[in-house]
């Protein structure tokens, strides 16, 4: 039997006196989808950052495909060694590089083959074919979001972390954004964890719905 794509075991994290993750455990199989809801400031983003290796935990462990990635405060696998991609709330695009370079740089640095072909293909599939030479600062909000998804997708991740990718959008844009996400998810076999405030988004994603309150992760 294959080990789960992601396993969290008794993960704990505090900021000063405030416990934001209290013995959180979870197992995510390949291709499985999870959404995590909860009020602001409850540690949802922190959980994703610990999974991505961008932050250490206080105690507990993170396992990725059977390998220990984080053990307590020690990061055993660096972020680039985890096969994880994350779409950040503010997208995290590289402002000095154009649309095509944003995706190509990523594929090239990761040593993936057919850099230009695949990058162009993914961008065209997500409707950015006409903007390949444009800098991210010149894109509309929706186009920039497409680019962030395209870059994550082009990395062929095993695990895709989405940190409120549609926050601060109006209802129409949010609807369009979710259609884009469904389009993205159709093209990947990665396990997905979506952090959101919106129960409707969680329902549309499908899979298991979780809620993080007072540091405790529970099924809805």
């Amino acid at each position: 039997m294959n080990p789960p794509q992601l396993a969290l075991s008794a993960l704990t994290k505090s900021f000063r006196q405030r416990v934001v993750l209290d013995h959180v455990s979870l197992a995510v199989e390949a291709g499985q989808r999870f959404s995590i809801q909860g009020p602001s400031g409850t540690g949802k983003t922190t959980l994703l950052r610990i999974i991505a290796g961008l932050e250490a935990a206080d105690s507990g462990s993170v396992w990725l495909a059977g390998k220990v990635a984080t053990e307590g405060a020690k990061i055993k696998l660096q972020p680039w060694q985890r096969g994880v991609q994350m779409v950040f709330q503010d997208l995290g695009l590289w402002p000095t590089r154009n649309v095509l370079q944003n995706v190509m740089d990523a594929r090239q640095a990761a040593g993936l083959p057919h850099v230009k072909e695949v990058s162009t293909q993914v961008l065209v599939a997500l409707g950015l074919g006409d903007f390949l030479k444009r800098k991210p600062g010149k894109l509309s909000g929706g186009e920039a979001r497409r680019l962030a998804f395209a870059r994550a997708l082009a990395m062929e991740p095993k695990l895709l972390l989405l940190d409120e990718p549609f926050a601060s959008l109006d209802p129409d844009a949010r609807h369009a954004g979710f259609e884009l996400l469904e389009q993205v998810l159709d093209q990947t076999s990665a396990a997905v964890i979506l952090v959101t405030h919106d129960p409707e988004e969680a329902t549309r994603l499908g899979g298991s719905q979780l809620r993080l309150v007072d540091g405790v992760l529970a099924c809805i």
């Binding site: 972020p79 680039w80 950040f88 995290g92 695009l93 402002p95 590089r97 640095a109 990761a110």
Partner: peptide, 24 residues
Amino acid sequence: QAASSFESALLIAPRLAFWSLLRI
């Protein structure tokens, strides 16, 4: 520099993250 811009590079390769520092 936007933290997410640097961290999204860090998720891919340290070389890319370093380049993002140089470019910005």
